[in-house]
Amino acid sequence: MSEINVQRRQFLKMSMGVAAVSIAPGIFLFDMAHGKADANKVRWGMLIETANCAEGCNDCVTACNTENGLSDGVSSTDSQWIRKIEIKDISTGRETSLPMMCQHCEHPPCVDVCPTGASFKRADGIVLVDKHLCIGCRYCMMACPYKARSFVHEPLQNQNPDVPRGRGTVESCTMCVHRIDQGQQPACAVACPNKSILFGNLNDPDSEIATRIRTVASAQVRADLGLNPGVRYQGL
């Protein structure tokens, strides 16, 4: 092999190395910016066993209201972060009871439409409203297929110091993010007397929730929309 050839080879190797070194941080930063670095480790989610969810039982709703300082009111202007829905299959007559709340989608429409970026998805998959940025345009409420969001119609007082809420902004289930950050479970999951709400990390293959959704049939609500919600339902 001639000397020129060796030199050329070395030059090629070196320039590829340089190229790789200069691109790598860019790719790394891109992943960081899109929350991908953590995304593989944690995605919080819930599995709801509808067979155990008793009709008329409202314990998850009460627990949520107490934890987050909601008023318990059910008028059309009151906030409801979680609600019980009774559904009946029109063609078969089968009845089911289940809790409905923010489904913490992987591709949340509320985040896409929010003009200021107040609606956002945390790296661990929780969809939140940054109330410092929310201007109260309510476009996210138009966009949400689950009717998960509420608008605060009145000035509030005496909020829970852990759960800031205020007039003129939109809010929804936070999966009790203040509890999750302290290593606790969401209030509704703790309160359910029938253990129908299983909370856990969908992305940890050894977690209870991941094992369960691998072995039993579960469904997403409005799966046809392709939003990949983090809340799944069993026995729907």
Binding site: P155, L156, N158, Q159, P161, P164, R165, G166, T169
Partner: peptide
Amino acid sequence: FECHSGERKSAWLKRN
């Protein structure tokens, strides 16, 4: 304080 509580958390907890 339109959203945040202006009250000491320990006091809020005691009351609630």
